[in-house]
Amino acid sequence: MIERWGRKRFAIGWTMTVVIALMAVLPPLAAVLQAFRAPQAEQWSPGSFQYVIETYGGCLLFSLRLAAFVALASLVIGVPAAYAFALHPFRGSAAIEQLAAVPLALPGVSVAIAVIVGYAQLRGNWLLLAGGQMLYTVPYAVRVVANTLRNVPLRTLEDVARTLGAHGVVRFRHVVAPLLVRPVVLASLIVFALSWGEFNVSFLLATPTQMPIGAALYGTYTSNSGAVSGAATAIFLAGALPLLVALQLLERRPFDFGQGV
């Protein structure tokens, strides 16, 4: 009886995993493969990729630079904030942390319009685009770093270091910094991936000379052939996939922070 229930559970688990995997993989796969449904003349060829790189290469480079800037700026703001929220909470810090996550619950279009209205003088400046994306990415950075720090007995480990004669610089270099590396790398990968794939803010705040790949991708769908949009999607995914793989690898090997670290 128990064995039969065990097998049933195993089957349900497998089915759910396959369904979720298909739900995640099918849409981008369909986007890439749509090129094959196009008329013969428009089907995939190395030329489609060449066309995308020639036409949208600037967008790809701009997106790379933008994502790098957004990741760096989000960490500069997010890591100290997460450190304070997780290890040195103060009156109202929990409320501030929650408040910072509000943009995540708002429609992207609303956030983009709010940014345009609020900072009209920056219209056309790439900083407005970066600022708009950071409304999403900073809360993620804070969440990821704060959650990890809450699971690390960092204060105890700092106390241990103090009892072992370690002064501030040595403590930071040998204890705090190495333990921050993992959540910071994790947060930077997530933020980079978010910025790379962001559409709402990018679409509304992009200019012809400063267009992130997310907005450009929309352009390929509306004005180019299936082969070109498929190639553009493949190139876009090629940028995002390594980030996702790196995230998986990082999350698979956590430190042992259980009893008796």
Binding site: P153, D159, L164, A166, V175, G260, V261
Partner: peptide, 20 residues
């Protein structure tokens, strides 16, 4: 005087070994 300048050894209940 702060602990780092007291020349002590302290063993914590959870051992608190540096995980990295």
């Amino acid at each position: 005087i702060p602990p780092e300048d007291r020349n002590i050894g302290f063993v914590f209940q959870s051992y608190a070994l540096f995980p990295h």
